[in-house]
Amino acid sequence: MNAPAALRIDFVSDVSCPWCAIGLAALEQALDRLGGTVQAKIHLQPFELNPQLSNAGEDATEHLMHKYGIDMDQVAANRAVIRERAAALGFAFNMGVGSRIYNTFDAHRLLHWAELQDRHLALKKALLRAYFTDGEDVASHEVLARLAGEAGLDHVEARRVLESGVYAEEVRAQEAFFQQRGIRSVPATIVNGTHLIPGGQPPEVFEQALREIAAATPA
């Protein structure tokens, strides 16, 4: 039996990006399907869709209408597509009229800290669920610290991280690194530093791409 192929997966995404939630769920399902044929390690990389937002955020519908030049009916139609895709992956997408969009920089700092303890995926999924399913404020230090605790991290230390401003330089450096490599939209899944899988693809697309990459990758 061949040894599993080693895959480094850099998943570039934002907490407030619905297609990132879809992409991460699909990627994990694809890896489950591949079973023992690959030995994959997912590294979460930061990307801010709206770095100019204040922590108070904005009305999400108005924000999308202004940013993309679309009307309320188009926003609703886009959300319906996202809701259907998410549901197929077991993820509840509840964004609608009255939802808000928030600054995510502190969430990225907390994710950087969580990755140092190998709890980044648990925290990322907690953040995505809190925002898209439960409508929580993911700029709030109180909410972020609580979610860190739910993800198996020390919530007191999480609060210290948030209030101290640590890891800001590291997050900015990673954002700049991937932007310099041409990443302008997310999610972007980069395998072994060379293979790009763009967008929130279905599980079967991730699975096929990863199989092909693994076949050409030494164990």
Rank of each mutant, 00 (worst) to 15 (best):
N94V: 02
A76C: 00
H108S: 02
H112S: 09
A151C: 05
H112L: 07
F132D: 15
A130I: 12
H120A: 15
Q117Y: 03
Y102I: 06
V81T: 15
G149T: 12
E142D: 13
R129M: 09
G149P: 08
A88Q: 12
L111W: 01
H141W: 02
S140R: 01
A158Q: 13
A86Y: 08
V138G: 08
W113N: 08
Y102N: 02
F93R: 04
L127K: 03
R109W: 00
A92Y: 06
I82P: 07
A80K: 15
F105T: 08
G96Y: 00
R100P: 00
Y102K: 04
D154F: 04
H155F: 02
A114Y: 11
R146W: 02
R83T: 12
A130W: 13
A145K: 05
Y102G: 04
S99Q: 13
Y102C: 04
K124V: 08
V81F: 13
R119W: 08
T104P: 03
R83N: 09
L89V: 09
A107W: 01
Q117H: 10
H141L: 04
A145L: 04
A126H: 05
R83V: 05
V97T: 06
H108Q: 08
L89F: 07
F93S: 02
A88S: 11
D134H: 15
F93Y: 15
A87H: 10
V138H: 09
D106G: 11
D134G: 08
L116D: 09
K124S: 10
N103Y: 10
A87G: 08
M95D: 00
I101L: 13
R109K: 00
A107N: 07
L110I: 04
A88M: 12
R146S: 04
G90N: 01
A80F: 10
I101Y: 05
T133F: 08
K124N: 09
A151D: 06
W113I: 08
A86W: 05
F132S: 14
F91C: 07
G96N: 04
D106R: 15
G98K: 02
E157L: 01
M95V: 01
L123H: 05
T133L: 05
A151R: 08
E157N: 00
E136Y: 02
Y131T: 13
A139W: 11
